[in-house]
Simulated assay, not measured.
Amino acid sequence: MNKMREELIAPCGMNCRLCMANQREKSHCKGCRNEDDIRYKTKNSTSCIIKNCSVIQSNKSGFCFECDKFPCIRLKQLDKRYRSKYHMSMIENLEHIKQYNLDSFLQHEEIRWSCKECGNFVCVHKHICLVCKTSFIE
């Protein structure tokens, strides 16, 4: 079933389920939380400074919002790029998770990013549904 999943929410607040790399058929990315199997490790994920941050790796939630420096400069830079190019904020995502909980965030994301035509998830990087090619307008 086409659902948002907890393991696809990255430590930085990126919803990997919306990523073009996760939605494509070839070289399908499983998200940075699904890398126990060496087959799923990606170059971007293994070199990601945010994902590999020692504070994130040692905190209870596994998310940036538990850090005393939240939001750090790297997260701010990433957030700025995603807000301007893709109309998505990792910082807002993390604040939602912190304030409400991960289940609430997943429900919110399912409603927000579902294609109105076919029900699949829109690709945040292309602003379209990769299944039916319907344009996404927020």
Rank of each mutant, 00 (worst) to 15 (best):
N2K: 12
K3T: 10
K3A: 05
M4A: 07
R5M: 12
E7Y: 09
E7A: 10
L8Q: 07
A10S: 15
G13N: 03
M14G: 00
C16I: 04
R17M: 15
R17P: 05
L18I: 03
L18S: 01
C19Q: 02
M20V: 08
N22F: 15
R24W: 01
E25K: 14
E25H: 11
K26P: 03
K26W: 08
S27T: 10
C29A: 14
C32Q: 06
R33C: 13
N34E: 00
N34G: 02
D36A: 11
D36E: 15
D36V: 07
I38R: 09
K41P: 04
T42A: 10
K43N: 11
N44R: 12
S45L: 06
S47E: 15
S47F: 12
C48H: 10
I49D: 11
I50S: 02
I50Q: 08
C53H: 10
V55F: 12
I56M: 07
Q57L: 15
Q57E: 12
K60Q: 11
S61M: 04
G62L: 04
C64A: 13
F65T: 10
F65R: 08
C67E: 03
K69F: 09
K69Y: 09
P71K: 05
C72D: 14
I73F: 07
L75V: 08
L75C: 05
Q77A: 08
L78P: 00
R81Q: 13
Y82L: 09
Y82G: 01
R83S: 03
K85H: 08
K85A: 09
Y86Q: 01
Y86L: 02
I91T: 03
I91H: 00
E92H: 11
N93C: 12
E95T: 09
I97C: 06
K98M: 10
Q99S: 15
Q99Y: 11
L102H: 05
D103T: 12
S104A: 12
S104D: 14
L106W: 09
L106N: 08
Q107I: 09
H108E: 13
H108F: 14
E109I: 04
E110W: 06
I111G: 02
W113N: 03
S114K: 10
K116L: 13
K116W: 04
C118Q: 01
C118R: 01
F121V: 00
V122A: 00
V124D: 01
V124C: 03
H125Q: 14
H125S: 04
H127T: 01
H127K: 15
L130V: 02
K133L: 13
K133A: 13
K133N: 15
T134S: 14
S135G: 02
I137T: 05
I137M: 07
